[in-house]
Amino acid sequence: MEAIQPTADHATSSIDVIVPTVVGLCAEFDDVTAVTETAARVRDAGFKYWDVHSPFPIHGIDHAMGIRPTILPVLVLMGGLTGCLFGITMTAWINAFEFKMPAPFNWTNLQGYQFFISGKPLWSLPAFIPVIFECTVLFSALTTVFGMLLLNKLPMLYNPLFRLKNFRRATSDRFFIVIDAGDPNFDRQKTAELLRSGGAVSVETVDE
C-alpha cells in the first residue's frame, strides 16, 4: 500500500487546499531478519534521523543501526554515589552531631541530635551501613528509571506515527523503519525505493 503523493510539500501547497506536511516515510516489515538487514543499509546510506520500531528489543539491532552506548550507567553511578553520601550524612547528622549551624542556616527542624544509647559510639558507622546501603540502592534505582525516561524523552503522548493505522502493530507483531523527512539524505522517491528493496511490506508517508 503506497500513499506517496507527488505534490505534498510545504513550498507548493496552495492556500485553498490544506496539504499535510510530510514528516517522514514509514516502512512496514513482517520479519526480523529483513528489518535488521534493511536497517544496516539505511545506516550505511548515511541517514541520521531515523529509527526502527519493534514490539521487542531485537538482538543486534544496536549494531545494525549504529546506536552508540547510552550514558545511563554513568548517571546511575552518580545517582548511587549521591545516595551513599546522603545516607552517610543523614545517619551521622541525626545520630552523631549536634553543632549549631551559623545564622541563616540555623533552622530548628534541621538541628542534629547526639543520640547516645547503650554506650555505643555516637558515630557508629557499622550500624549505619544497612541504611546507607538502602539509600544507595534507592537513589540508583530512581536515577535508572527517571534517567531512562528522560533520555528517551518520555512521556511523549503525541507522535505523528500514531496516526498510521498499521503502526498499531508496532507493539504487537510488525517492525517499522521510519526515516525523518528532515534528514539531509532524505529523498522521497529514492528513500522509499531503498526501504522497499529491503523487503518492506508497505511504505507509507507520515503526515504532520
Binding site: 529509527d51 544496536d62 552506548p69 547510552t70 550507567p73 531512562m148 511523549m156 508496532a170 507493539t171 517499522f176
Partner: peptide, 17 residues
C-alpha cells in the same frame, strides 16, 4: 504507557535500564 512507540533507540536505553 507514556507514549511508548517501540523505538529501538528507546529499547536500547530501556534494556540497559
Amino acid at each position: 504507557s507514556l507514549g511508548w512507540n517501540g523505538s529501538c533507540r528507546h529499547w536500547h536505553r530501556y534494556e540497559r535500564a
